[in-house]
Amino acid sequence: MSSASVSSAQASSRVSADILAAGAVCWRSGPDGLEVALIHRPRYNDWSWPKGKVESGETLPETAIREVREETGLDIHLGVPLPTAEYMVGGKNLKKVFYWSAQVTGEHSFTPMNKREVDEVRWFPVGEARTKLTSYADRDQLDALETYDATDALRAWPLILVRHGKAFPRAKWHETEHVRPLLALGTRQAMALTGLLSAWETKKLISSPWKRCMATLAPLAAATGKTIKKASCLSEKSTAANPDKTIRFIEKLLAKGKPVIYCTHRPVLPTILEIYTQHSPKRISEKLPKTDPYLKPGEVLIAYVRPGAVPRIVDIERIRPIDS
């Protein structure tokens, strides 16, 4: 079984499968409505979604981004997750393929990296794509895409919550709490987050000003050239003293409607998750973590927020960090 990280919105945090793969359904608004990109594989003479197997050290979102780039030439950011495909390979190996939606804007030419694997990529209106897809099961992703489109959830943006990486034990730290640092594992988690979090569009990085949170986002900031905005209301001390200020801050993030990554502490999570619950239908709020520690050190929770006057979370995902 692969050791790749897994989205718990689609499966358990440790998937029981012999083969893990990921891909995306690339979509755009055409003159007559929704259009999707299909690839043609000469080896199988079929039309399908761009996808491929997880490589060593990759998370599933990173795999989806890489495979779409290799098979279509498109650089994408991930949108709402779509149904997972599950089937047997060779009659004995269980394969699971994880999918996300991915909006494509502007004019793009398709340039597959290996034309022996993919010799054609074409846009199809969804009705035509349904008949063009070789595998009947691939219609599951298309059906979900259309359902999301009908409710404007297809254009949901990601609000990404990060719990800081593994820090020096609180009980063994005898200096000021706000300068308690990451352990070596926490630093590795921060480095691993750089590739993972690049899978989603990001407009801003925000963090508790405490050292361990800032250090968790520092590699991503360096890689993207973005400055980390410090928000004191995301610190443990500020939230304990004035939780209403933290609540107002999170409500403002939801209302602005812009993709954001923000990092905070375990004691702050119950306050944030309560706000998420208020902005989610029951089927989504039931996916939110309910018990302490809520998220593991370095773990990520992505809330997909439907645009509009009233923010509404339409799906969530949790991505497990590296553990060692």
Score class of each variant (00 low, 15 high):
98 F>P: 00
169 P>Y: 03
63 T>H: 06
147 T>H: 12
255 A>T: 13
188 R>D: 15
201 E>S: 14
180 R>M: 10
261 I>Y: 00
45 N>Y: 09
120 E>D: 15
137 A>K: 15
137 A>I: 09
227 T>M: 14
65 I>M: 01
214 M>A: 08
251 E>C: 07
15 V>E: 14
245 K>M: 12
161 L>Y: 02
172 K>V: 06
117 E>H: 09
10 Q>M: 13
293 P>K: 00
132 K>D: 07
100 W>T: 01
53 K>S: 13
168 F>D: 07
203 K>N: 14
72 T>N: 02
221 A>G: 15
221 A>V: 10
107 E>H: 15
289 P>F: 04
175 E>M: 12
185 L>D: 09
273 L>C: 10
197 L>S: 03
297 P>T: 11
23 G>A: 06
266 R>C: 12
67 E>V: 04
78 L>N: 00
27 W>V: 01
216 T>D: 07
27 W>F: 07
324 S>T: 12
275 I>H: 06
229 K>S: 14
74 L>N: 01
295 L>E: 03
298 G>M: 05
259 P>V: 07
290 K>F: 10
263 C>H: 03
105 T>W: 00
251 E>L: 10
194 T>P: 05
199 A>K: 00
302 I>K: 00
66 R>A: 07
59 T>L: 05
156 A>I: 04
49 W>A: 01
275 I>K: 03
318 R>G: 02
281 P>G: 09
206 I>A: 12
280 S>Q: 07
35 E>T: 02
77 H>W: 01
207 S>G: 03
305 V>G: 02
183 L>I: 06
89 V>N: 09
77 H>T: 01
126 V>K: 03
309 A>P: 09
23 G>K: 00
1 M>N: 12
210 W>F: 14
230 K>Y: 05
84 T>Y: 05
270 P>T: 09
305 V>E: 04
14 R>E: 14
184 A>D: 14
70 E>H: 12
234 L>K: 06
77 H>G: 00
177 E>P: 07
162 V>G: 06
169 P>D: 05
147 T>F: 04
158 P>D: 03
169 P>N: 05
42 P>V: 08
308 G>A: 06
13 S>G: 14
44 Y>Q: 13
60 L>I: 10
300 V>R: 00
84 T>W: 03
141 Q>E: 09
59 T>F: 09
257 G>E: 03
187 T>M: 13
